[in-house]
Amino acid sequence: MRQVRDLRARQHKAAPTRAQQRAKTSEARRRLADAHRSAAADRRLTKAAGGGRGGALGKVRAGLGRLRDAAVKKARSVRGQRTEAAMNGHRKSAEMKRLAARKAPARRAARAALWRSAVRTHARRLLAGLLAAPIGLLGMVTTPLGRKLGWAWLQHPGRRLYRRLAAIAQQHRTRRDTAIRDRLAAAEAAIDAEDTATPDVVGDRAERPAGRVPGNSSTPATTYEGVHVSGFRFEEAAAEMEAAAQSYEPDGCMEILAMVEGLPAALTCIANVMKILAERADAEFALEKEVAGGLNDIYTAMLGTVAVAEDLGPLFRNVHAQDIARHETPRNGHEAEKGWNV
Rank of each mutant, 00 (worst) to 15 (best):
A221S: 14
C253K: 14
G158Y: 03
E310M: 01
A85F: 06
R68F: 00
A75V: 07
K275Q: 11
L126F: 13
R120G: 00
R160N: 07
S93A: 15
T46G: 13
G55A: 08
Q20F: 02
L295Y: 05
E236F: 13
L126R: 11
R29Q: 10
R107L: 04
G333A: 06
A49W: 07
T25S: 09
K47D: 12
E288H: 14
G52V: 04
L131N: 01
H12L: 08
S93K: 12
R10Q: 15
K13L: 08
E84S: 10
S247R: 15
P199N: 12
H172S: 07
I135A: 04
R18M: 09
G139E: 00
T178P: 02
G136A: 14
A118N: 11
R53A: 13
Q155I: 09
F234M: 11
L114I: 03
K289P: 05
E284C: 08
L277S: 03
A258E: 08
G333C: 06
M274H: 14
L127K: 12
A70H: 05
A321H: 14
I298V: 13
R2C: 06
A206E: 03
Q171Y: 01
A325W: 12
H36T: 09
A28V: 14
D34Y: 00
A128K: 03
A19C: 07
A123V: 10
E279G: 08
C269E: 13
T178R: 02
D282Q: 13
F234P: 00
E335M: 15
L287T: 04
P157S: 04
H122W: 10
A70P: 08
E255P: 08
A271F: 04
D182W: 04
A278D: 03
M87S: 05
E84Y: 08
R124M: 13
A197D: 08
D177T: 02
D323M: 07
A101C: 13
A221R: 15
K24S: 12
A23K: 09
R102Q: 12
E288V: 13
L138T: 12
L263C: 04
R30V: 02
F285Q: 05
R124S: 11
A9Y: 07
I191C: 07
A70E: 02
D311W: 05
R68L: 06
L149C: 07
A109R: 00
S77I: 06
C269L: 12
R160Y: 11
M302N: 06
V202L: 06
M96V: 15
V342I: 12
R120A: 06
A112K: 03
L154Y: 04
T17E: 04
L57G: 02
R175T: 09
A9H: 10
E284D: 14
E284W: 09
A244H: 11
K73F: 00
L145E: 01
K97D: 09
A210I: 09
R175G: 10
E337F: 05
R164V: 03
A239F: 11
S93H: 14
P157K: 03
Q21K: 15
A71Q: 02
